[in-house]
Design a protein around this nucleic acid. Structure first.
Lengths: 202, 202, 202, 202
DNA sequence: AATGAATGAGGATTCATTCAT
DNA sequence: CATGAATGAATCCTCATTCAT
């Protein structure tokens, strides 16, 4: 009846992270619809109950995962941001965004394709964090517009969303493997990306 | 003892269609993740078992739904195609594509966001049908390029895919309700759409 | 994956009854709070899922049990009704009521101590059936009052409820084993019963 | 690292009382079947584990609650006891008993409807305490019998139990909301109570 | 005296599917 | 062509309790 020993893997505060790691791994492995608390527990080597010590519910866990993903995406964008010339920044950021999506397929989908109605409310704080990513693009567009090298019409905010739209579509269709196999995937990605960025030149 | 009478709804070949109709309806009603054979059967007024007389499995049924959706999208695109000026055609087709997505949210997601790897093989025939939709865009781009009013670089095929990518991103983010609420959804859609189409002008 | 053979016990329409029987048995064995679908299924030798073919939910099953109990109680009362002298009838019915309760302890509690708020709505039809039992007492009291041998003040309906109240209290405390052990249970029951009935003599 | 500070509520012996208070409160709030250690702990602002420092088990806690309830009931009866005329005393005590039950619905049920067999042994001390309440009725009946104004046949003890039986039945059915809604609940209670008391007049 | 972390057992219910008829 | 009966596996989550600290 009582626990005999710290079963196998992480314990304490580490467990929380282990759970997130395993959840992320499983997301890629089996996909969101088949992600279950039991599988996560089995994966980390703890009991399903233990998960509830660290996450209120499955939704909360997913939220945490999304939050993590948003932070991670932000980091990737910042790391890729060359600073300086807005045009170059825009290209670099766009590329980094797409790469992030292609490198974290299921995580990306959970981050951007999950319906809010199907999940408990996303905490406001996490929402703000998600927003920061777009702000990055908005900033670049705004400064590029000021320097007359980028077209941020009608407003940098709208333009940033429009740009995002194109990048997301590219990632999304590639992840869903809907791009014709006869098109070399990487070459196509390059072409589409170039086109998208070009469309925002002044 | 044999069944007494065809319970309520259609029988024979009709039943197949009734099942598809109900599945499509339920898709909107309860969403893909909660779509179940039983619910479909209850909705049509037949037994769950009967569905298996017409569809090998749930996957097969979903495939049929996708095929239907693809045909339906093709119809919508054709109906919206004004013929004549390639630039006008491109705008009209793009708009029609986006409208179809926004008008059939759940169906659209099943059509374009479902992972093929997690479903039984998508039949080649259906694949071809899906392809036709893109061909429409490709044709327009090709003829526009020939008339030097559209930019179909590097090839019409790639350009068509790139265009599709943008349109899909727009639909996808709107369906996932990820567009900032402060942006009027319809106005934003118009703006993004205009921008996308403009990017393909020569 | 598929069923191999009609596992063990009843099948078909019989299964429904077997489930009810087992549920009734378990009620006595482990009590209402620990009654679970799984245990019932194990008891009858079918899968937990199968129960849902016959009962919509646990509540529905309990309702069915209550309905059965009410019918059964009604039968017991009728069988014990000697006809004729209202005083004798009242005594016989009262005794039969108490005996029924003592003979079906858990069933009795589910029938009369379960909080309606804690269960889905009790179907109207079953409600009427429950009512019939009281009507029997009401009839006897009314006819006894007419013959001036019983006191049905202020009205037969109220008097019947008041009588019921006493009988139920007797059953309830005996079932909860709250009657002092130094009092011989049966002798006490006789005494209390006699007193109750006497209180309704004119 | 040791606990930093007594979190919020009481500590030491006070905590015991806080736990009982919260348990009683929760009993009304969520009902016995959904009463859980965790909920109690959350309510008091202590850890679930801490409860076990003061109560051996959930059963023990419930026992304590029952004991408290019995004391409380005893207080209510004593407070209502007018002294003097046995007939008046009997009426007053009976009314007080019923009121106590109706005013503390969930507690009353735990006190008188819980099956001892399904709980760890009820400590003898608590048993004695429960007994005192009945003794009160027994005394009144005995003195009333001596004064030939009450009927305590066959013995005051048995008569007290019989009286209790009726009072309990009244409370129990009212708590379970089994009294026909067409009967005004309070009026009916008055009528049934009057009848019960009258039945013990000499 | 008090805690945080952990657990195994169990809760009701839904699912896609299959069998014999 | 159609069915009703049945199933095992899976779902999220809650429970009372215990351990080391």
């Amino acid at each position: 009846m009582p626990p005999i020993a710290p079963t196998r893997a992480a314990t304490g505060a580490d467990l929380r992270q282990s759970i997130l790691d395993e959840a992320r791994r499983l997301l890629i492995d089996v996909g969101y619809p088949k992600l279950s608390m039991r599988k996560i527990a089995d994966g980390v080597g703890c009991s399903a109950t233990s998960i509830y010590l660290h996450f209120e519910s499955k939704d909360t866990l997913i939220h945490a995962l999304i939050g993590e993903g948003m932070r991670s995406l932000f980091g990737a964008l910042q790391a890729a941001d060359p600073a300086g010339d807005p045009v170059g920044r825009l290209a670099a950021l766009s590329r980094a965004y797409v790469d992030f999506g292609l490198d974290n397929p299921e995580l990306y989908e959970v981050m951007f394709q999950l319906h809010p109605e199907r999940m408990a409310r996303f905490p406001a704080e996490d929402y703000r964090r998600a927003r920061r990513n777009l702000d990055l693009f908005e900033d670049v567009l705004a400064s590029g517009a000021e320097a007359s090298v980028l077209d941020a019409e009608p407003t940098p905010e709208v333009a940033a969303h429009a740009l995002w739209t194109s990048l997301h579509g590219l990632v999304s269709l590639r992840l869903a493997e809907r791009i014709d196999v006869r098109l070399a995937a990487d070459a196509f990605t390059d072409a589409a990306l170039a086109r998208t960025v070009r469309a925002f030149r002044a």
